[in-house]
């Protein structure tokens, strides 16, 4: 094994890991505010990628198509909360989680009906030759993935720490009961959490689409990996980002170092790590006790 191969696998891993991180942040946002594990989270990524690809094919400029797709999927998230989760009212958390599984199936079905079963392509955001980093290839799109993720993570952190609405969301996550008595409308906060989760998922789907392919079922795998990343991070926002990156890198290294013919088992890696984590360190590797309050 040449050292540049290790670097190459690390680049692959950071790339896909950044997407896992964005999706994991969506899981954390919804879980912290509502206690729900939203199994439609992966489908937010799929919808983002498909809508963006569809608009680009209709000759929309890529930046506009991307922005519209993110806003559209954020609206889908908000509508999911307003139209289905909120009317279910005081149903148990398990019921609400099953509703999100239903929503995930619905989104996949609608995507097949709207765009067909075949993968669609989204062009790389900028053309250009790959860069050489320690002998490994770094595509311009890789920089877009990592840069976008970094901007989103920093922006989100500023939103939660610096703005009144961000502080209100953290307050609801920490103590919903007290937050309501501070004049915070906890229902609006839940809608906002779903919208945020939709936007985060869509961004992940759009930036990864040029290097992978966008198709109706792409959200299933991304959603499960994002969920694993969120669990690794103890359902906290910082942990989720770290969890996504670690998961991506470990996965790619295992795939790259495995004897030929075993590369297809790389998906199993995520779940072996998940089981190990749940057995030996259920609070995530930052040691946070699982529960609400992870924003």
């Amino acid at each position: 094994m040449e050292p540049q191969h290790l670097v190459q696998f690390a680049i692959f891993g950071l790339n896909i890991g950044a997407i896992y991180a964005l999706i994991a942040l969506g899981f954390v946002a919804v879980f912290s505010i509502t206690g729900i594990i939203n199994f439609a989270q992966g489908e937010f990524a799929m919808l983002g990628a498909m809508i963006a690809a569809w608009l680009v094919r209709a000759e929309w400029p890529l930046p506009v198509a991307g922005l519209v797709a993110v806003l559209a999927v954020a609206a889908v998230g908000a509508l999911l909360e307003l139209g289905v989760i909120r009317p279910a009212g005081s149903a148990s958390i398990v019921t609400l989680i099953i509703i999100t599984i239903g929503a995930s199936v619905l989104f996949k079905g609608l995507a097949v009906m709207a765009w067909g079963p075949d993968p669609v392509r989204l062009p790389p955001f900028t053309a250009g030759p790959p860069l050489r980093v320690l002998g490994a290839r770094l595509l311009p799109q890789d920089l877009w993935v990592l840069g976008t993720t970094a901007v989103v993570v920093v922006g989100l952190s500023l939103f939660f720490r610096r703005t009144l609405q961000g502080k209100a969301m953290r307050a609801v996550a920490m103590n919903r009961y007290a937050a309501r008595l501070m004049g915070i409308d906890a229902r609006r906060t839940s809608t906002a959490a779903f919208a945020l989760a939709g936007g985060l998922g869509a961004i992940g789907g759009i930036v990864i689409a040029p290097s992978a392919s966008a198709y109706w079922d792409m959200g299933t795998g991304l959603g499960l990996k994002g969920f694993v990343a969120a669990i690794l991070g103890g359902m906290g926002a910082g942990g989720a980002v770290l969890g996504g990156l670690v998961l991506g890198v470990v996965e790619e290294l295992c795939a790259g170092l495995a004897p030929s013919g075993f590369g297809g088992y790389k998906d199993a890696v995520a779940f072996v790590i998940l089981l190990g984590m749940l057995f030996f360190r259920p609070g995530g590797f930052l040691g946070r006790v699982p529960g609400r309050g992870g924003l």
Binding site: L164, K167, A168, N175, A178
Partner: peptide, 21 residues
């Protein structure tokens, strides 16, 4: 007591003003 333990003292009071924002 129902304070927001992971926030700063100041942030707790700022959240208390939410109804005025």
């Amino acid at each position: 007591l129902q304070i927001f333990a992971n926030m700063t003292v100041l942030e707790n009071v700022i959240v208390g003003r939410h109804g005025r924002s």
